[in-house]
């Protein structure tokens, strides 16, 4: 009986063996640093103070950074949902041959280094890039449209990078929809709208929430895309963190920012899980 109680922990042993020293410990260090004080050479004075949190939470600049990033994360998440849902639906409902193609189209960009993908996006969105060349050639615009190094360009890049994170959980969820039952129900007189509302939407909700959570967390942490495609006028969290930690060697301030960011994501994850547990109690949550 006691062995049975131990078994989950035995199964967890490999994961804990990695995560405790290489994740819990650094988190602890981060927390400890956030409560210290910055030294000019990048070290942290081992005092105990909340002044870093004070400065991070009251500085309007940091407030803007958090709002920008959370807004962008939510926006890209919603866009991914809007684009990803019909695509996932198509994946689940189409013939086996096309399914392979559609899924490979989602996977293949992940095989290419993000840096090279960005090069591709730069070639498309730059002032002299494909989009503007087409616009100018067809006369739709007389001056190049500024997409690159603007919020819009960065958003497009983010959507491209994280769409797979939304499509895959949605496909997972939609595969559980009893499509034959739907067809049967429609032949029994239930309208197509009812099928969507009462069956498809609830069943796909957990997948949509997980997808949104994954995209949100990823956009929040992204450093590469804001740096290579964004603008400093719309400052994002990860580059701002980098500036504090690395350029300014303000380790304690950066640690406080990081803890706040972590709490934000944990809050969002928790809210999402709560929503799913309320609305779709049978389903799996992150």
């Amino acid at each position: 009986m006691r062995l049975r109680a131990l078994t989950p922990w035995l199964w967890l042993a490999p994961a804990l063996l990695v995560l405790v020293p290489f994740f819990a410990l650094p988190l602890g260090l981060l927390l400890r640093n956030s409560l210290g004080r910055d030294e000019p050479s990048g070290g942290v004075e081992p005092v105990f103070t909340l002044e870093n949190y004070g400065s991070v939470l009251t500085d309007p600049f940091y407030a803007t950074v958090f709002l920008n990033t959370a807004g962008m994360a939510a926006g890209v998440g919603l866009a991914a949902l809007v684009v990803g849902f019909p695509y996932a639906y198509a994946v689940v409902r189409c013939s086996a041959r096309w399914r392979g193609v559609l899924l490979w189209a989602v996977y293949t960009p992940l095989l290419v280094s993000v840096i090279v993908r960005v090069l591709g996006w730069i070639a498309i969105t730059a002032d002299g890039g494909l989009i503007n060349a087409a616009l100018l050639a067809t006369g739709l615009s007389s001056r190049p449209l500024r997409i690159l190094y603007e919020v819009e360009g960065m958003g497009v890049g983010m959507l491209h990078r994280y769409l797979p994170l939304m499509v895959l959980p949605l496909v997972n969820a939609l595969q559980r929809v009893p499509w034959d039952l739907l067809r049967a129900s429609s032949s029994l007189g239930a309208g197509p709208g009812e099928g969507i509302l009462r069956i498809i939407l609830p069943l796909s909700l957990p997948g949509a929430v997980i997808g949104f959570q994954l995209v949100f967390a990823s956009v929040l942490s992204d450093y590469v895309l804001p740096t290579l495609m964004g603008t400093t006028r719309f400052r994002m969290l990860a580059p701002a963190l980098y500036d504090e930690a690395v350029t300014n060697l303000a380790t304690a301030t950066a640690a406080a920012m990081a803890v706040c960011a972590l709490l934000l994501v944990v809050l969002m994850l928790g809210l999402g899980n709560l929503a799913v547990r309320r609305l779709a109690p049978w389903a799996r949550t992150l």
Binding site: L19, L27, L214, S221, Y223, Y242, A255, V265, L269
Partner: peptide, 29 residues
């Protein structure tokens, strides 16, 4: 099992940390 929810949250938590934050904290660790 006792503590299941906490364990699951802990296992998923690395997703919530920006990579550079983890890298910076992981080096001295």
């Amino acid at each position: 099992f006792a503590g299941r929810a906490w364990v699951q949250a802990f296992i998923m938590l690395p997703l919530a940390i920006p990579g550079i934050v983890l890298g910076l904290a992981l080096l001295p660790t």
